[in-house]
């Protein structure tokens, strides 16, 4: 499974886990993360769940903190 597909799948399951709903039609590269329906707790759970599944967390691995604004930027961080 491609990383992007995995992220999409996990994103939707975290929305369900946190009783949230996608506030846009679908996740696109330019979807603004803070407007997608996931709050910061949901976002933290997403990064934690991806770490469990992919065995790495690019946010903690990086020396300089990265703060993605869009879904596309978020995926790109994992694809690096």
């Amino acid at each position: 499974m491609s990383i992007e597909k995995k992220i999409r799948e996990t994103f939707l399951s975290v929305l369900e886990q946190t009783d949230s709903v996608l506030t846009c039609k679908e996740l696109q590269d330019d979807t603004v993360l803070l407007e997608s329906g996931l709050d910061s707790l949901g976002f933290a759970i997403l990064v934690a769940t991806l770490e469990e599944e992919l065995d790495y967390d690019p946010f903690s691995m990086s020396d300089v903190a990265i703060y993605p604004k869009t879904f596309g930027e978020f995926v790109a961080i994992y694809e690096k």
Binding site: S40, A44, D57, F59
Partner: peptide
């Protein structure tokens, strides 16, 4: 607790 780069801890 486990460290979270987003919320400090989870």
């Amino acid at each position: 607790a486990k460290k979270s780069p987003i919320l400090g801890e989870l």
